[in-house]
């Protein structure tokens, strides 16, 4: 193995820098696994894991719609809202285009069950209309974006509410960790499908985490901050609507 000359080292460093610059914009684009990225076995596995959650969410949704037809319009609006916030460019320091997952906020407002169903539809639209994610990887993406992240966010939010923590802090932590968790699950999904030959699953997991970390951690913080801003605004301007969603308890 011959040593590299100084020039060659610069070349490698330069190529890495270019790869990173190009990488950041689309990769943060959304932590979606692309069409055809996973082998067939894994596609089926993640579909099978996601289905019980989605069916449970679907039954919950059906109940709430049967109870009041009007909820249909609200739920559909919520789905569109998740689509819009997860495909909007948010202001970011590097100037790259980055997006919120939006599902953490969705879970706080509408509950994790509804979000699991809505995120299936939203991910399907993103796959068809924007080529974010894909049809074969829909199961895997649903699990990371629509089930793992929202359930964690909702759990943390409920805990915070029970112990009467500051609401803003709780919302921030819930959305921040929900976003981070989504990204860890995606890295895990990729690592399971593509274990590194030198070091197996764990090495591959660290590789995937490492590549996404520089962009995903600031993004998670921004997502947390934005969620807090949105919640504050909603509580001050849209009390009756929030009450109808059950986000604020009915006053006696």
């Amino acid at each position: 193995m011959s040593k590299l000359s100084k020039k060659q080292k610069w070349l490698v460093a330069g190529l890495l820098a270019v790869a990173l610059c190009f990488g950041i914009s689309p990769v943060t684009g959304a932590m979606h696994i692309m069409e055809g990225y996973l082998p067939m076995g894994f596609c089926i596995l993640w579909y099978v894991i996601s289905i019980p959650f989605v069916v449970w969410g679907f039954i919950q949704l059906k109940k709430s719609i049967d109870a009041n037809r009007r909820n249909m319009a609200i739920i559909a609006m919520c789905g569109a809202f998740i689509f819009i916030i997860s495909s909007l460019k948010i202001p970011s320091v590097t100037g790259s285009c980055s997006h919120m997952t939006g599902t953490g906020l969705g879970a706080l407002l509408f509950g994790p069950a509804a979000v699991s169903v809505l995120s299936v539809i939203v991910l399907l639209f993103q796959a068809i209309l924007l080529a974010h994610g894909g049809l074969t990887t829909l199961g895997a993406n649903t699990f990371s974006m629509g089930i793992a992240g929202p359930f964690l966010s909702f759990g943390i939010y409920m805990l915070g509410k029970k112990f009467n923590f500051n609401k803003k802090v709780t919302v921030f932590v819930a959305c921040f960790l929900g976003d981070l968790f989504t990204y860890c699950v995606t890295a895990l999904q990729l690592a399971l499908a593509y274990p590194s030959e030198l070091g197996g699953y764990s090495a591959s997991f660290v590789k995937f985490l490492g590549v996404f970390a520089p962009t995903q951690i600031p993004l998670a913080i921004i997502e947390g901050i934005l969620s807090v801003i949105v919640i504050i605004a909603l509580e001050s301007y849209a009390k009756p609507e929030m009450r109808s969603l059950g986000f604020i308890e009915q006053e006696a």
Binding site: R69, R70, M72, A73, I74, A76, M77, A80, F81, I84, I85, L88, I90, P91, I222, I225, L226, I229, V230, I232, A233, L234, Y237, A238, E241
Partner: peptide, 24 residues
């Protein structure tokens, strides 16, 4: 811009919530 973006989103939410009522 963070502040504007946040308020745009929350306003969007409120407006659309009202609109979804009209739609129904």
């Amino acid at each position: 811009s963070l502040k504007s973006f946040g308020s745009t989103i929350s306003n969007l939410f409120i407006v659309s919530l009202k609109r979804s009522g009209h739609l129904f």
